[in-house]
Write a protein that binds this DNA or RNA. Structure first.
Lengths: 234, 234
DNA sequence: TTTATTAATAGTCATATTGACTTTTAATAA
DNA sequence: TTATTAAAAGTCAATATGACTATTAATAAA
């Protein structure tokens, strides 16, 4: 039997940065940590990678277990591998970001699980290097959202253009010209306008749109130049 | 003393996909594996992550040890974490891609180390999932190169526009219009034209250029739209 | 009933960028 | 002197952009 004798072994975890969007604000889903050390402190949703599962499997499982959520947009974005990032024992963490439509899942969340949404700029301090992970995930989301229509994952089935613009402004941390934004969005062919209007925030009302899923699937990887002139870290 | 009792521990490795560019072709740096299993088969440059180093440190160390190379462009891009990817024992691999100027380091490589360059389309079959890693790294490089001027890392100090175009064509696997390519490249402000010409491939000769390092540093993260209309996986 | 109000949406326009293509240039070799 | 050829520059119609203005559709106030 061949062995990689004497090589050191480490714990491997996954951590999920779960983004949501509600009331015009980007939100973060956090849980209270259930084990020592730092028990009861706020933490990203995470867990150790089991012997029979891939890291992707682990992320899906951990997300499902902590929130009841399934079929979520999930993307691995970075490994955190500094020797001392966990004070107890060396643990590498594979970080994923997840995008979910808050409304779609609000029932499960509130009823069965302890996860809680925080506006991203009012979230509590997190354990270990989780704050760094969140900062990195935001950068990555910003990058991706400037090039691909990934932010639709955060919106409900019906949404308005002002709502979409607000989401882009929140993610990119900048004001966007409404006319130009609408023109660009409409030209992507990703939006289908519905008859119905949302009159909750204006007299005239804003048309609801739904996503053209066919186009979304086929053109997702096209580079769309949604927010030109941005300076973006990958 | 707190412990994460009973949680499984795994080996963690790094693997480096090292890209080079020579004679108009993209190349890959490979080594013959020095341990069982699959000893003497061609493999990416890699190694286990030591107890006192981060994964980034490990990648730098492994690259240095196998090639003598230092100060190389290196970027973590994906973790490979399927349970059975190494037949002997579960090993996660953190994959990095590296970009180097072949000419700059050809001496060290040939004299002291066993690493060998292969044109990327004529490289031998690799061990484990290394072929998948290479395919993924090429995609990632294509993505990055369409948006950021990262390919200059592959070129010598002095280079010509036709040479640069050849590199872009090789990475993106497409023909590019020379006039439009030159116009776009010149408009970035990244190129400084030298007096000297390279007459090795034409009578007229092509001007040598050098990189405007100041601009390269400051504008690296700007999105440049170098190859528009591409369909790109991240 | 008319008018004021206001967000939503559409339109304007000068400028810049793009892709496809043609022309000129600079050197060498015939 | 001329033919040759890759390199470099130029042309141009079509499109995209950013900054800005005008109109619209509903409600609420007069």
């Amino acid at each position: 039997m061949i062995e990689y004798s004497s090589q050191p072994h480490y714990l491997v975890a996954v951590d999920c940065i779960v983004f949501g969007f509600e009331d015009g604000r980007l939100k973060l889903l956090l849980v209270k940590r259930g084990l020592q050390p730092e028990i009861n402190k706020w933490s990203l949703i995470g867990g150790f990678v089991g012997p029979e599962e891939s890291t992707d499997d682990a992320a899906i499982r951990v997300l499902k277990k902590n929130t009841g959520l399934d079929g979520i947009y999930l993307e691995q974005f970075k490994v955190y591998g500094k020797p001392d990032r966990d004070p107890i024992e060396r643990t590498l963490s594979v970080a994923y970001f997840a995008l979910i439509d808050i409304q779609k899942y609000s029932n499960q969340l509130n009823t069965y699980y302890h996860a809680e949404w925080f506006p991203i700029n009012e979230s509590p301090q997190l354990i270990f290097d989780h704050d760094t992970m969140v900062a990195d995930a935001r950068k990555r989301l910003r990058y991706k959202a400037a090039l691909h229509p990934v932010l639709f994952e955060l919106l409900p089935k019906k949404f308005t253009l002002p709502q979409l613009q607000l989401l882009f402004e929140e993610v990119n941390h900048m004001k966007i010209d409404t006319g130009n934004f609408n023109r660009k969005m409409n030209s992507t062919g990703l939006l289908i306008r519905l008859q119905e209007k949302d009159k909750s925030s204006s007299k005239k009302g804003a048309y609801y749109f739904k996503l053209n899923h066919k186009r979304y699937e086929s053109d997702f990887h096209l580079i769309l130049n949604l927010i030109p002139g941005l300076k973006l870290d990958l």
